[in-house]
Protein backbone atom coordinates (compact mmCIF):
# COMPACT_ATOMS: atom_id res chain seq x y z
CA UNK A 1 0.00 0.00 0.00
CA UNK A 2 3.05 2.25 0.31
CA UNK A 3 3.83 1.92 -3.37
CA UNK A 4 0.82 3.98 -4.41
CA UNK A 5 1.93 5.14 -7.82
CA UNK A 6 3.56 2.02 -9.16
CA UNK A 7 0.17 0.57 -10.12
CA UNK A 8 -0.19 -0.09 -13.84
CA UNK A 9 -3.18 1.18 -15.78
CA UNK A 10 -4.81 -2.26 -15.77
CA UNK A 11 -4.57 -2.85 -12.03
CA UNK A 12 -7.80 -0.96 -11.40
CA UNK A 13 -9.73 -3.70 -13.21
CA UNK A 14 -8.40 -6.51 -11.05
CA UNK A 15 -11.02 -8.72 -9.39
CA UNK A 16 -10.38 -9.30 -5.70
CA UNK A 17 -12.24 -11.90 -3.67
CA UNK A 18 -13.62 -10.28 -0.54
CA UNK A 19 -15.62 -13.20 0.87
CA UNK A 20 -14.62 -16.55 -0.69
CA UNK A 21 -17.72 -18.66 -1.35
CA UNK A 22 -18.25 -21.72 -3.47
CA UNK A 23 -21.26 -23.70 -4.59
CA UNK A 24 -19.99 -27.21 -5.31
CA UNK A 25 -17.15 -26.62 -7.75
CA UNK A 26 -18.62 -23.25 -8.77
CA UNK A 27 -16.81 -20.17 -7.50
CA UNK A 28 -19.43 -17.66 -6.34
CA UNK A 29 -17.15 -15.52 -4.18
CA UNK A 30 -18.29 -12.06 -3.21
CA UNK A 31 -15.80 -9.88 -5.11
CA UNK A 32 -15.05 -6.18 -5.29
CA UNK A 33 -17.10 -6.12 -8.50
CA UNK A 34 -20.11 -7.49 -6.61
CA UNK A 35 -19.45 -5.03 -3.78
CA UNK A 36 -19.65 -2.05 -6.15
CA UNK A 37 -22.82 -3.39 -7.75
CA UNK A 38 -24.34 -3.61 -4.28
CA UNK A 39 -23.15 -0.08 -3.51
CA UNK A 40 -24.63 1.19 -6.78
CA UNK A 41 -28.01 -0.42 -6.16
CA UNK A 42 -28.02 0.77 -2.52
CA UNK A 43 -27.21 4.36 -3.48
CA UNK A 44 -29.90 4.37 -6.17
CA UNK A 45 -32.51 2.85 -3.85
CA UNK A 46 -31.63 5.19 -1.00
CA UNK A 47 -31.78 8.18 -3.32
CA UNK A 48 -35.21 7.36 -4.76
CA UNK A 49 -36.71 6.40 -1.39
CA UNK A 50 -35.32 9.56 0.22
CA UNK A 51 -36.32 11.79 -2.71
CA UNK A 52 -39.88 10.48 -2.83
CA UNK A 53 -40.49 10.47 0.95
CA UNK A 54 -42.27 13.86 0.88
CA UNK A 55 -44.67 12.95 -1.95
CA UNK A 56 -45.13 16.68 -2.43
CA UNK A 57 -47.45 18.00 -5.11
CA UNK A 58 -44.91 20.73 -5.77
CA UNK A 59 -41.65 18.78 -5.69
CA UNK A 60 -38.58 19.90 -3.78
CA UNK A 61 -35.14 19.82 -5.42
CA UNK A 62 -34.45 16.12 -4.76
CA UNK A 63 -37.92 15.02 -5.77
CA UNK A 64 -37.53 17.04 -8.96
CA UNK A 65 -34.37 15.14 -9.88
CA UNK A 66 -36.11 11.83 -9.26
CA UNK A 67 -39.12 12.92 -11.31
CA UNK A 68 -36.91 14.15 -14.16
CA UNK A 69 -35.18 10.76 -14.29
CA UNK A 70 -38.53 9.00 -14.29
CA UNK A 71 -39.90 11.24 -17.05
CA UNK A 72 -36.70 10.89 -19.06
CA UNK A 73 -36.89 7.09 -19.16
CA UNK A 74 -40.69 7.07 -19.54
CA UNK A 75 -40.45 9.37 -22.58
CA UNK A 76 -37.70 7.19 -24.02
CA UNK A 77 -39.82 4.03 -23.66
CA UNK A 78 -42.95 5.72 -25.00
CA UNK A 79 -41.06 7.23 -27.91
CA UNK A 80 -39.41 3.98 -28.99
CA UNK A 81 -42.13 1.39 -28.29
CA UNK A 82 -45.33 3.37 -27.84
CA UNK A 83 -47.59 3.41 -24.78
CA UNK A 84 -48.07 -0.38 -24.87
CA UNK A 85 -44.33 -0.64 -24.21
CA UNK A 86 -44.80 0.87 -20.76
CA UNK A 87 -45.00 -2.65 -19.31
CA UNK A 88 -41.26 -2.78 -19.95
CA UNK A 89 -40.70 0.51 -18.16
CA UNK A 90 -39.62 -1.06 -14.83
CA UNK A 91 -37.01 -3.15 -16.63
CA UNK A 92 -35.61 -0.31 -18.75
CA UNK A 93 -35.58 2.06 -15.77
CA UNK A 94 -33.74 -0.44 -13.54
CA UNK A 95 -31.26 -1.15 -16.31
CA UNK A 96 -30.62 2.54 -16.94
CA UNK A 97 -30.15 3.41 -13.28
CA UNK A 98 -27.96 0.37 -12.61
CA UNK A 99 -25.60 1.15 -15.50
CA UNK A 100 -25.59 4.86 -14.69
CA UNK A 101 -24.74 4.18 -11.04
CA UNK A 102 -22.01 1.66 -11.94
CA UNK A 103 -20.44 4.10 -14.40
CA UNK A 104 -20.65 7.17 -12.16
CA UNK A 105 -19.54 5.57 -8.88
CA UNK A 106 -16.55 4.05 -10.65
CA UNK A 107 -15.34 7.58 -11.44
CA UNK A 108 -14.80 8.45 -7.77
CA UNK A 109 -11.11 8.43 -6.87
CA UNK A 110 -9.93 5.75 -4.48
CA UNK A 111 -9.14 6.87 -0.95
CA UNK A 112 -5.31 6.74 -0.79
CA UNK A 113 -4.07 3.82 1.25
CA UNK A 114 -7.32 1.87 1.12
CA UNK A 115 -6.89 -1.91 0.91
CA UNK A 116 -6.97 -3.24 -2.64
CA UNK A 117 -10.37 -4.86 -2.24
CA UNK A 118 -11.94 -1.49 -1.48
CA UNK A 119 -10.48 0.43 -4.43
CA UNK A 120 -13.05 2.20 -6.56
CA UNK A 121 -14.25 -0.24 -9.17
CA UNK A 122 -16.46 0.03 -12.26
CA UNK A 123 -18.43 -3.20 -12.72
CA UNK A 124 -19.37 -2.18 -16.28
CA UNK A 125 -15.69 -2.18 -17.31
CA UNK A 126 -15.82 -5.98 -17.41
CA UNK A 127 -17.30 -7.46 -20.56
CA UNK A 128 -18.90 -10.37 -18.70
CA UNK A 129 -21.07 -7.91 -16.72
CA UNK A 130 -22.18 -5.93 -19.79
CA UNK A 131 -22.67 -9.15 -21.78
CA UNK A 132 -24.92 -10.53 -19.04
CA UNK A 133 -27.03 -7.38 -19.14
CA UNK A 134 -27.18 -7.57 -22.95
CA UNK A 135 -28.18 -11.26 -22.89
CA UNK A 136 -30.90 -10.43 -20.37
CA UNK A 137 -32.30 -7.85 -22.80
CA UNK A 138 -32.10 -10.16 -25.81
CA UNK A 139 -33.65 -13.04 -23.83
CA UNK A 140 -36.61 -10.83 -22.94
CA UNK A 141 -36.92 -9.81 -26.61
CA UNK A 142 -36.91 -13.45 -27.80
CA UNK A 143 -39.23 -14.83 -25.10
CA UNK A 144 -41.71 -11.96 -25.32
CA UNK A 145 -41.50 -11.92 -29.14
CA UNK A 146 -42.52 -15.57 -29.42
CA UNK A 147 -45.10 -15.21 -26.63
CA UNK A 148 -46.76 -12.21 -28.30
CA UNK A 149 -46.44 -13.09 -32.01
CA UNK A 150 -45.93 -16.87 -32.01
CA UNK A 151 -43.97 -17.97 -35.05
CA UNK A 152 -44.80 -14.63 -36.65
CA UNK A 153 -41.84 -13.29 -34.69
CA UNK A 154 -39.62 -15.03 -37.25
CA UNK A 155 -40.84 -12.45 -39.79
CA UNK A 156 -38.17 -10.30 -38.17
CA UNK A 157 -35.66 -12.18 -40.31
CA UNK A 158 -37.63 -11.79 -43.54
CA UNK A 159 -37.78 -8.19 -44.72
CA UNK A 160 -40.66 -7.48 -47.09
CA UNK A 161 -40.09 -6.84 -50.81
CA UNK A 162 -37.07 -9.10 -51.30
CA UNK A 163 -36.95 -11.24 -54.49
CA UNK A 164 -37.26 -14.96 -53.78
CA UNK A 165 -33.84 -15.99 -55.11
CA UNK A 166 -32.16 -13.52 -52.77
CA UNK A 167 -34.16 -14.59 -49.72
CA UNK A 168 -31.87 -17.33 -48.28
CA UNK A 169 -28.91 -14.96 -48.29
CA UNK A 170 -30.90 -12.10 -46.75
CA UNK A 171 -32.29 -14.36 -44.02
CA UNK A 172 -28.78 -15.54 -43.23
CA UNK A 173 -27.50 -11.96 -43.03
CA UNK A 174 -30.46 -10.89 -40.89
CA UNK A 175 -29.82 -13.85 -38.60
CA UNK A 176 -26.17 -12.90 -38.13
CA UNK A 177 -27.24 -9.31 -37.59
CA UNK A 178 -29.65 -10.42 -34.86
CA UNK A 179 -26.98 -12.54 -33.17
CA UNK A 180 -24.62 -9.57 -33.20
CA UNK A 181 -26.98 -7.40 -31.15
CA UNK A 182 -26.07 -8.60 -27.65
CA UNK A 183 -22.41 -8.57 -28.59
CA UNK A 184 -22.51 -5.01 -29.91
CA UNK A 185 -24.43 -3.83 -26.81
CA UNK A 186 -21.86 -5.51 -24.56
CA UNK A 187 -18.76 -4.39 -26.45
CA UNK A 188 -19.84 -0.75 -26.65
CA UNK A 189 -20.46 -0.23 -22.95
CA UNK A 190 -17.45 -2.26 -21.84
CA UNK A 191 -15.03 -0.66 -24.34
CA UNK A 192 -16.12 2.86 -23.43
CA UNK A 193 -15.64 2.33 -19.71
CA UNK A 194 -12.37 0.41 -20.11
CA UNK A 195 -10.82 2.93 -22.51
CA UNK A 196 -11.90 5.91 -20.42
CA UNK A 197 -10.44 4.54 -17.20
CA UNK A 198 -7.16 3.53 -18.85
CA UNK A 199 -6.71 6.98 -20.44
CA UNK A 200 -7.50 8.64 -17.11
CA UNK A 201 -4.97 6.48 -15.29
CA UNK A 202 -2.24 6.99 -17.91
CA UNK A 203 -2.68 10.78 -17.92
CA UNK A 204 -2.68 10.92 -14.13
CA UNK A 205 0.46 8.77 -14.16
CA UNK A 206 2.21 11.38 -16.32
CA UNK A 207 1.77 13.96 -13.57
CA UNK A 208 3.57 11.80 -11.03
CA UNK A 209 6.37 10.86 -13.43
CA UNK A 210 6.98 14.49 -14.40
CA UNK A 211 6.93 15.69 -10.80
CA UNK A 212 9.45 12.99 -10.00
CA UNK A 213 11.73 14.19 -12.81
CA UNK A 214 12.91 17.22 -10.83
CA UNK A 215 12.42 20.98 -10.98
CA UNK A 216 13.49 21.36 -14.60
CA UNK A 217 10.64 19.22 -15.92
CA UNK A 218 8.24 19.33 -13.01
CA UNK A 219 6.36 22.40 -14.24
CA UNK A 220 5.30 20.54 -17.41
CA UNK A 221 3.06 18.37 -15.23
CA UNK A 222 0.47 21.16 -15.36
CA UNK A 223 -0.49 19.96 -18.87
CA UNK A 224 -1.36 16.36 -18.00
CA UNK A 225 -3.10 17.78 -14.92
CA UNK A 226 -5.35 19.95 -17.10
CA UNK A 227 -5.79 16.99 -19.43
CA UNK A 228 -6.89 14.82 -16.52
CA UNK A 229 -9.51 17.38 -15.54
CA UNK A 230 -10.82 17.52 -19.11
CA UNK A 231 -10.92 13.73 -19.43
CA UNK A 232 -12.71 13.40 -16.09
CA UNK A 233 -15.41 15.75 -17.36
CA UNK A 234 -15.61 13.83 -20.63
CA UNK A 235 -15.92 10.58 -18.67
CA UNK A 236 -18.88 12.01 -16.74
CA UNK A 237 -20.58 12.64 -20.08
CA UNK A 238 -19.63 9.19 -21.40
CA UNK A 239 -20.93 7.52 -18.22
CA UNK A 240 -24.34 9.07 -18.75
CA UNK A 241 -24.33 8.69 -22.53
CA UNK A 242 -23.50 4.98 -22.47
CA UNK A 243 -26.24 4.27 -19.93
CA UNK A 244 -28.62 6.18 -22.22
CA UNK A 245 -27.47 4.35 -25.36
CA UNK A 246 -27.82 0.96 -23.67
CA UNK A 247 -31.34 1.83 -22.52
CA UNK A 248 -32.51 3.30 -25.84
CA UNK A 249 -31.18 0.30 -27.80
CA UNK A 250 -32.96 -2.00 -25.34
CA UNK A 251 -36.13 -0.07 -26.18
CA UNK A 252 -35.50 -0.37 -29.94
CA UNK A 253 -34.95 -4.13 -29.67
CA UNK A 254 -38.01 -4.55 -27.43
CA UNK A 255 -39.95 -2.65 -30.09
CA UNK A 256 -39.09 -5.45 -32.55
CA UNK A 257 -40.63 -7.95 -30.15
CA UNK A 258 -43.77 -5.87 -29.54
CA UNK A 259 -44.33 -4.90 -33.18
CA UNK A 260 -42.88 -7.83 -35.14
CA UNK A 261 -43.47 -7.60 -38.87
CA UNK A 262 -43.74 -3.80 -39.00
CA UNK A 263 -40.16 -3.64 -40.02
Amino acid sequence: MIDLYAAGPMEQFEIVKLIPLSLGSLDISFTNSALWMVIGVSVATAFFVFAARGRALIPGPLQSVAEIMYEFVADMVRGAIGSEGMKFFPYVFSLFIFILMSNLLGLFPTIPGAPHGLHTFTPTSHIIVTFTLAMLTISIVIVYGFYKNGLGFLKLFVPSGVPLWLLPLIVLIEFVSFLSRPLSLAIRLFANMLAGHIILKVFAGFIISLLGAGVAFGWISIFPFLGTIAITLLELLVAFLQAYVFAILTCIYLNDAVHAGHH
Binding site: S177, L179, R181, L183, S184, A191, L241, Q242, V245
Partner: peptide
Protein backbone atom coordinates in the same frame (compact mmCIF):
# COMPACT_ATOMS: atom_id res chain seq x y z
CA UNK B 1 -20.28 16.77 -29.76
CA UNK B 2 -20.98 14.21 -27.05
CA UNK B 3 -23.75 12.66 -29.09
CA UNK B 4 -21.51 12.54 -32.15
CA UNK B 5 -18.96 10.48 -30.23
CA UNK B 6 -21.68 8.20 -28.92
CA UNK B 7 -22.87 7.68 -32.49
CA UNK B 8 -19.37 6.93 -33.72
CA UNK B 9 -18.88 4.33 -30.99
CA UNK B 10 -22.26 2.84 -31.77
CA UNK B 11 -21.54 2.47 -35.50
CA UNK B 12 -18.09 0.98 -34.85
CA UNK B 13 -19.35 -1.59 -32.36
CA UNK B 14 -22.25 -2.59 -34.65
CA UNK B 15 -19.83 -3.38 -37.47
CA UNK B 16 -17.34 -5.13 -35.20
CA UNK B 17 -19.93 -7.27 -33.43
CA UNK B 18 -21.51 -8.51 -36.66
CA UNK B 19 -18.10 -9.44 -38.08
CA UNK B 20 -17.15 -11.32 -34.90
CA UNK B 21 -20.41 -13.27 -35.00
CA UNK B 22 -19.97 -14.04 -38.72
CA UNK B 23 -16.40 -15.24 -38.27
CA UNK B 24 -17.31 -17.36 -35.23
CA UNK B 25 -20.20 -18.99 -37.12
Amino acid sequence: SGQAMGRAFRVASELLAAMIVGVLL
